[in-house]
Structure formats: structure tokens, C-alpha cells
Design a protein around this nucleic acid. Sequence first.
DNA 1: CCGTTCATGTAATCTGTTACATGATTTA
DNA 2: TAAATCATGTAACAGATTACATGAACGG
Lengths: 188, 188
Amino acid sequence: MSIEHVILGLLQKPLSGYDIKQHFDRMISHFWAAEQSQIYRTLKKLEQKGLLKSKVEPSERGPDRKVYSLTPAGRKSLQEWLRNEPIFGDERYAFVAQLCFMGELEDLGQTLSFVRQLKEMQEETLAELQGCDAAFRECEPDYPDDLPHREYHFALTLDMGIALAKAKIRWCNQVIKRVEARLERETE
Amino acid sequence: MSIEHVILGLLQKPLSGYDIKQHFDRMISHFWAAEQSQIYRTLKKLEQKGLLKSKVEPSERGPDRKVYSLTPAGRKSLQEWLRNEPIFGDERYAFVAQLCFMGELEDLGQTLSFVRQLKEMQEETLAELQGCDAAFRECEPDYPDDLPHREYHFALTLDMGIALAKAKIRWCNQVIKRVEARLERETE
DNA sequence: CCGTTCATGTAATCTGTTACATGATTTA
DNA sequence: TAAATCATGTAACAGATTACATGAACGG
């Protein structure tokens, strides 16, 4: 049920489904992704449950917006979720699965180019996260340790994204070295 | 469609649905989890598609086993997936989502105990992975760089699990220090 | 006039979890 | 004899993706 709670968490201010999608893509994509259609569906369900209320507003540009906000029951549900123990141990990494079975190809050259490509992808991710961090640092004088609680917690998760991206890149570098060395040994 | 390919990848040797669940839990749980019921459903689908074939065998102990193995089409499908570019960027971390919105509680004591608990969980995961690594090291004299390709690639993914677990623990330690410091400042 | 952004959603399908149902064999 | 392990699955529900459908406003 995490997506419901992530949406409740984002609704600190009233937002439309479209706004929520922007937040997913721009702020939290390093730990959660959601499709637009899933967001609309979940908003409808949360409203039916009485955790959200909505009102239609004219937009400055484009069609009318349907803006959602938390009800007291919604805030309570969010707080309960936050006080749960950490939800941990169900992460999935498709690229690790690919690497795990790549022995099947009997082609270390393929493994090497796979890991190099992976490293590039992770470097892009890292650059984005660091850009976000830099922007934050510039416009918030109290960054990072005296931010208001909400931004402070967001900054902590940004650090996590950066730390993990760096760890993945270090691991890629090690794998690249090891596979290169093995390739040299095997072609001797 | 990754679960289909993960199952194809595990079927280097013929295995029953029950065996496959054991492999998920014992060898690859740090990058992919699956429920028994999902495994049986997926096996059935893969057989319908002609990527697997099955035969029923008597078991040494317990009821008959239905043992699946790759067809040539199955092997081809696996190899195509392995030659795809790395599937990357859709990881989800529910515990990061929880932390991200925890500012809502306005209770840094709660944040602190959350992160301490998270750290303990990650230390358990790390210990398991290191145990697996140690066992591997003991019984395989060529570990890690001269293993046959299949085991070699598995060892690479084990390293990744260990590297990520360590990175998460380091991040927890930093967060714990920072939050402790802020709590002291705020209660002065 | 064409592409992008803004803005809403539905339908079909696929993936994943939880609960249920059955029954033999082994170990304590 | 009771619990754990071996072994199969189904049903219902929840979560996620992809494709489809509509249309206004704005910038080039």
C-alpha cells in the first residue's frame, strides 16, 4: 500500500494529479516511480476511502484542475504509516538479475560492455541528484542541518540517493577492472 | 517481464517450482523476491508460451515433483534479455519514502529510532550476504576470479549486494549522528 | 500549423501478495 | 503425535504498466 501513503505524503499542500506526477518525476524518482494513470486511479480510491477531498478549480493555462487535499483521516493514516517499522527487504534490481545470469552467454566482452553502460547510466543519475542537492544548497541558507523538518527529511533522502549512486559506480569500476583482467588472462 | 526471465535464468538445470522458490530465498533474495504462488503461475505461463517444458517425476521424499527445463525457445528468450541494455531506474525503496515524509511527525526522536532500527535490519542483511560469500570462498578454491562464468557472475552480484548494504549502513550512521546533534541543539 | 506543456482520465493487461486448500514424509 | 519440510496449486485482491482517448493554450 506504499503508493497510497507516498501520495498522502506529497499532499502536504493541495495538488492536482498532474502536479503529483511532476513531484514524482522531479523530486522522488530515486526512490519511487509512478505512472500518471496509477496516480489518478489511486487518488480516486483515496477519495472514496475518505482520506482525501477534491475540488475543481480553473487553471491559469489549460483545462480545469482537480485539486486534492488531505482530510483529517488522511493525515492520520499517513502518520500511522510513518510510525510503522521501516519497510525493508523487498527491493528489486533488474540489472543485477541480468548480470547474475549473464554467464549463460559465455561472452565476457558482453559483460564488460553491459557494466560500462550501467556505469554511465548511474553517473547520469548521480549528476541529477547532485544538481538537485546543489540547487537546494544555493537557495536554502540553512541547508542541510537547520532546514525545517520537512525539507530536512527530504535532504536526508537525497543524501541516500547520492550515497547509493556512488556505491553502485564504485562497484561498477571494480567489476570493470576485474573483468578486463580476466579477459586479458583468457586471451593470452 | 523480469520475473519470467529470472526464472528462465535459474533453470540452467531442471528444477521444480519448489526448488525455484528455494533458489529465490537462498541465493537471489538481495535483488529479487518472489512468492511461491507467483512462481507456479509464471511457470505455467512460460510452458504455455513454449519457453519451458515439464515432466512429472516421483520424489525421494514427499509427493511427485513437476520438473521444468528450458526449451530452445526459452534459452533464446533468456539470451535476448541478457543482451538488452541494463534495466535501470525503477528501483523502489519504501523505507526512504517513509523517512522522506517523516517531517510530518515533527518528532526527531521518532526519526532517530526509525533510522536505528533500519540500520539493524541492514546489518542483518549484510551478515547474511557475508556468510554466503564466506561459504562460497571456502568451498570454491578459484573464488572469486577464476570461477566458471556462471558462478563468477553470481559472485559479482553478491559483491554488489554487500557493497550496497555497506553503503546503506554508512548512510544510516551519518544520519544518526546528524539527527542526534540536531536533537541536542534543539533541546538546549 | 506543429510540437510541447497542461490537464483529465479509461481499459486491458501484467505483476505481485495474501489467504486458502491438500496431503505425504521426516524428525523430535 | 505434533511440528517441520516437501510438494502441489487456486482465488481474490492489490499494485503497476501500456495503450488509448480528448482537448485547450502557448511558443516558434
